[in-house]
Design a protein around this nucleic acid. Structure first.
Lengths: 214, 214
DNA sequence: TAAGGGTTGAGATAAAATTAACAATATGTG
DNA sequence: CACATATTGTTAATTTTATCTCAACCCTTA
């Protein structure tokens, strides 16, 4: 069914944005939408929207546009969000705490089922209804909850070891918040969320702007 | 001096990665490095490293490579990190708290000088040595500390209004953690850190992988 | 039913980014 | 010094991504 050959990652990223925008439209009772309206809503071109969708099929009606609810469901399905995903998180520091309590994950069907840390002062503490567990409990949790994705929110120095440990226990994909390039087998999907990189894009652009004015 | 015409954003992103890698090499006492070693270290191709650097000048020596300390300084300078940047942060929730205490910002020369929130239960509380202030105090803080960049870590519903308020008070660039597209003047630099988008890239890829196997 | 306006999907075109190739240059060795 | 090896910077080729264009199609209205 998926006629996907190779989908640019930028397309997947935008699809995620489209789908959230469509959810908002749907919540507001909007029934039909055009590529131009989606484009305006999320800040891309209408052609881009249509091209992105074209990787996966034909979802609209010529002369009419797209049915909001249908397109929302299609996009969610394409992203693999027509189901729930159980996650594990390692690192019960401030960032780990924030991620555990982040509403945005739940809204998209993600559930953190366990939090791990090796810091004895953190083990046993509660984050919402979750108790912080020692790393050694991870294998059991992964099996029990069918976890395929792990979130890495440890200090930088621990990140590589923890990532290796996750993989040894069957984790297939890692969302990495530690600011270092992980060295992992190619079959493992890794995406980095580097909190300061985007800040540095801002400072680069501000600096460039100043230079232009001189 | 900068022979910059138009630099791809991906190049700036990688530059940020390179510069952190170079800092690590420097800390480890490494004096000289080749584009191939940088490439291996951060997971890109050697040609990519050289091309990226070529946007900004000639920093290496043919047949030899790059001086680590020099290249580190050049990359930091290009990114605008040869100075300190004062930031303001709005939203004293769990994410705001985590960002305030995030070491990675400090390490790169960023300093959050004030935290704002309009939630009366949060105003007055302390995050490290910073007191959470009401939004109305922002104009003064921005002027006093020469703040040009704001971090937005509010709930989604408040994000647009807060962004408008920041801009009205002179903020030129925003790092937005709220999962919605902000509608702002073109002169304002905005970058979004969407915590769940990258998770959705992972689920997309996991789903796609399964599909391939069928 | 015919005409006009709107919108998609897809192929053609253009632009941008990445990779490859190689001349130029440095170092080390006999 | 001559030669072999290493590595950059730059140009060209390739690949990838985005934009443009327009036929096909839907809907409304007369």
């Amino acid at each position: 069914m998926l006629k996907t050959l190779r989908v640019p990652e930028a397309t997947v990223t935008r699809l995620s944005i489209y789908s959230r925008f469509l959810e908002k439209l749907d919540k507001n009772g909007v029934v039909s939408v055009s590529s131009g309206e989606i484009a305006d809503g999320v800040g891309v071109s209408p052609a881009q929207v249509r091209k992105d969708l074209a990787y996966f099929g034909e979802f609209g009606t010529r002369g009419v546009g797209y049915n909001v609810k249908d397109l929302m469901r299609y996009t969610l399905k394409i992203l693999g969000l027509d189901r729930h995903w159980n996650l594990v998180l390692v690192g019960a520091g401030n960032l780990g705490y924030a991620l555990c309590t982040y509403r945005g994950f739940n809204e998209r069907g993600f559930k953190i089922v366990a939090v791990f840390d090796n810091d004895l002062t953190k083990i046993g503490k509660k984050i919402n209804e979750l108790e912080v567990l020692p790393l050694e409990k991870m294998p059991g949790v992964i099996k029990e909850h069918g976890v395929r994705i792990g979130i890495l929110a440890t200090p930088t120095r621990a990140a590589q070891d923890v990532a290796d440990f996750m993989i040894k226990n069957g984790i297939e994909a890692i969302l990495n918040f530690a600011p270092l390039p992980l060295n992992l087998p190619d079959v493992i999907e890794v995406r980095n969320v580097d909190l300061s990189v985007k800040l540095e894009i801002l400072t680069f652009n501000l600096g460039f702007k100043s230079a232009q004015n001189v």
